[in-house]
Design a binder for these strands. Structure first.
Length: 195
DNA sequence: CCCTGATTCGC
DNA sequence: GCGAATCAGG
């Protein structure tokens, strides 16, 4: 694969959007995240203030190290600074997430309602944490999921408003910490079985 | 361990 | 110019 115009274009776009090099690499296909990073540097659009490795570049900052050769510049030199980071995403957030997986009792009222002691107590905090986390979710598509991205589904699969959490999973688990919290309930008193 | 970006350097 | 290897930080 080579860096065609279109590919570079997408690279720029995604990089500007704050996508990680690895994500961009996946999207582009045929390249590794290293390739992406390398290209990003060659293109000159590197630092994003975010991510990692904040310092390091400007290690030695001369007090008055002004290079005289920077003076002459006929052109205004439209330094690429399209948009710092105003609001990458409008965030529709039209509706409040009712916490899909946190199943509400789907039991037709008026039924015996089995034991169900006081299960369904996924610690309100955990639930709150979930809805909070969903705001920071990576919102990955099915194909973007990896072995280590939270596979917690959010939204309605029938809508375009559907995605997977995508945050880093808890080692060994298929979900991120917050979702593991509500996915794996203590499965409390299950010993009714043997009465 | 997983991830991130940054840099180097042989190709 | 390219990107794997490596480095460095979280």
């Amino acid at each position: 694969m080579s860096w065609t115009d279109e590919r570079v274009e997408l690279l720029k776009k995604m990089w500007a959007e704050g996508q990680s090099a690895s994500q961009i690499a996946k999207e582009l296909g045929g390249v590794t995240r290293n390739a992406v990073i390398g290209k990003v540097h060659r293109l000159g659009l590197s630092n994003r203030t975010t991510g990692t490795t904040p310092a390091k570049s400007e290690a030695k900052e001369k007090p008055a190290a002004a290079k005289p050769e920077v003076a002459a510049k006929p052109k205004p030199e439209p330094r690429p600074e399209p948009a710092p980071r105003p609001a990458p995403e409008p965030k529709p957030a039209a509706e409040a997430r009712p916490t899909p997986p946190a199943r509400k009792q789907i039991i037709p009222a008026g039924q015996p309602l089995p034991p169900q002691p006081s299960a369904n107590e996924i610690s309100p905090e955990a639930l709150a944490k979930v809805s909070e986390v969903e705001k920071k979710a990576k919102k990955l598509t099915l194909m973007e999921l990896t072995e280590r991205t939270c596979k917690w589904p959010v939204g309605d699969p029938a809508t375009d408003d559907f995605w997977f959490c995508g945050l880093p999973t808890q080692p060994g688990k298929p979900y991120c910490e917050a979702h593991v919290g509500v996915a794996f309930q203590p499965m409390s008193a299950r010993r009714d079985r043997r009465r």
